[in-house]
Write a protein that binds this DNA or RNA. Sequence first.
DNA 1: CGCGCAGGTTAACGATCGCTAACCTGGGGG
DNA 2: CCCCCAGGTTAGCGATCGTTAACCTGCGCG
Lengths: 192, 192
Amino acid sequence: MATTRAEETPTRREQILATAADLFAARGFHGVSVADLGAACGISGPALYKHFASKDAVLAEMLVTISERLLDVGRTRVARADDADAALRGLVDWHVEFALHHRALIIVQDRDWESLPADARERVRSLQREYVDLWAAQLRLLHDGLDLTAARAMAHAAFGLINSTPRTGSLPDPSLHDLLIEMALRALLPPA
Amino acid sequence: MATTRAEETPTRREQILATAADLFAARGFHGVSVADLGAACGISGPALYKHFASKDAVLAEMLVTISERLLDVGRTRVARADDADAALRGLVDWHVEFALHHRALIIVQDRDWESLPADARERVRSLQREYVDLWAAQLRLLHDGLDLTAARAMAHAAFGLINSTPRTGSLPDPSLHDLLIEMALRALLPPA
DNA sequence: CGCGCAGGTTAACGATCGCTAACCTGGGGG
DNA sequence: CCCCCAGGTTAGCGATCGTTAACCTGCGCG
C-alpha cells in the first residue's frame, strides 16, 4: 500500500477500460472474448482477472462511471445557468461534447447495457433516470403545460438525436458539433 | 408444391421471424439461443433448421426485409408528394409510423446489424445508404447550400431521434406519435 | 392403399467462452 | 539479503452454443 494518493493512476486498469470500450463498441460485448481483450492490451487472457473480478465487471465499471459523469456534469451545468433556456443550452452543449469525444462509450452504453449484471444495471438505470429528469425539468419550465411523461419522452428523443452521431462517419467533428446543437435546440425549444 | 399463390403464408416461418424479433430485441441476438427461440415458438431447438439455414439467416431475412420495406415505402411517399416540404413530411410520417408499430425491429436493426453475415450486412448497408440519401436529397432542396455530407448527417440524426422511442415506455402511442413528428420536423426544417 | 416427404424429435459433436488453478518472476521494503 | 507479492504465464475445466445426424410420424396425393 503505497502512500500515493488514493486511486492514483493504475494505468493497466485504465488501459483495459479504454481498450474494452473500443472493442465492445466495434464488435459488441458478447463479440469480444477475454482473450481478445487481453491480447489488445498486450497481455493475454486470464491476466485480466488480476484487475477485474469478471468480464461483466469491466462493462459495469465502464458504464457506471460514464453514467455518473454524465449526470454530475449535467447538474453543474444546470446549477451554473441563469434561466431554463440557458440551462437547456448547457445540457445540449455538454451532451454533444461528450458524445463526440466518447463515441465508443455512447455505442456501448445503449447497445450493451442489457448485458450488465443485475446490480450494476439497476445503478445505471437509476442514474440515467435522474439524468433524464434533469432535462425534463428544464423542458417543463420552457413549455407551458408539458407533463412529466411527455417531457421525459422529449429528452429521450434528444438523446437519440445526439447519440446517433457515432454511427455516422464522414462529417468533420466541428461541423457535426454545430449541426447537432442546432438540431437538438430546434427540436427541444418551443417555436418562437 | 401446392397451387397456392407463390409465397402464400407459410405461418411457421413468419411465426419464427416475429418471435425472433421480440426475443432479439429483448435480449440481443447473442443472448438468444436457438433452443430459446424454438421453445418460444412451441417447437424446440434444431427444428428451426427445417425453416432457416442458420440462426444468422433468421436475422438476415428479418433485417433485409425491413430495410427493403423502409426504402420502398419511403420512395413512394416522396414520389407522391408535390414538393420537397411535403416529401419530407411524408418521410417523417412514414418513419414514425413504422418505428411505433415495429419497435422490436427497430431495436434489433440498430443494435445487432453487426452480427449479420457479410453478404446480408452489405445488402442492408446498401439499402440504408439509399434510404438516407432519399432523405438527404429532400433536405438539400429545403436548405440552401447544404452539402450532401451534412444532409446525410441530418438524416441520421433524425433517425436517431425517431428510433429512440422504442426504448421509452410510458407515453401512450398517439401522443408519442405526434410529439416525434413535431420534434423531427422542427429539427429538420429550416427556421421560418 | 401405400408411400413420400414436410416437419417434427432426441442425441451428440466440436468449438468457444468465462473462469480457476497452479506456477513463475523480478524488484522494492524490512 | 531475502522474501513477498503484484502481475504475469499456461493448462485445463465445465458450460453453452450452433449445427448435424439419425430417426419418427401423420397427412395428402397417385
